[in-house]
Amino acid sequence: MNIFRFLGDMSHILSFLLLLHKIVGGKSAAGISLRTAEMYAIVFCTRYIDLLWNFASLYNYLLKLLFIGASLTIVYFMRYGPSQKATYNADEDAFPVQYLIAPCAVLGVLINQDHSSPFEMVWAFSIYLEAVAILPQLFLLQKQGEVENLTSHYVFALGAYRALYLLNWMFRFMTEPDYQQRIVWLSGLVQTALYCDFFYHYYQSKKGGLNKSVKLP
C-alpha cells in the first residue's frame, strides 16, 4: 500500500458519498447517468467476485463490499426511487452502452492474464469496462452543457481516483522488482484520459470559487 493508492481509494469512496448524498439525500438524479451507474455496478460485481475466495487483505475485502453495496444502492434508487425517477432524464441518458460492453467482453476473453482461468477473463472484462464506463455520464453532461455543483465534484473525485492509481502504478513499478500490470496500466490511462476535458473545465470553473457550476461547451 502506498499513499497514491490510499488517496485513490479515498477519492473513490468520496465520489460514492457525493453521489449517494445527491441521489439518496437530495432525492435527485438530475444530470446523473443511470447507464454509467449500471456499468459501474457490473464492473464491481464482476471484478470483486473473488470476495468468495480471496481474503488476502481485510482493507480490500471491506472496500469491495462497500463499492458493490454503494453501486447497487445507487442503481436501485435511480430505478425505483419515486423522486429520483422523476428527476432522471432517460432520453438524454442515451449513450449506446452495448457498443461498450460487447467489445470489452471480447477483449476480456482474448486479452487477460491467464487464458485458462474464467475469473481472469471476467476480471479483464471488468478492467476494460471501467475504463469506458464514465462515457455515458460525460455524454450526458456534454448534452446538458451545465453541470450542477455536486455532480461536478462527484465526477471529479471519480476521475481523480484512477489518476491517483496511475501514480500508484508508477510508484510500484519503480519500487517493486518485476512488477508489471500492463492491462490495468493501459486501461487506467484510457480511463483518465477520458476525463481530461472535464478536468480542464472543472478547474476553469472552480478556480473562481468551489461552488460555481461547470460549463461544458
Partner: peptide, 10 residues
C-alpha cells in the same frame, strides 16, 4: 508468475 499479476488492488 502469480506475484506479477496478483490482484492485490481494488
Amino acid at each position: 508468475e502469480v506475484a506479477l499479476h496478483a490482484h492485490d488492488e481494488l
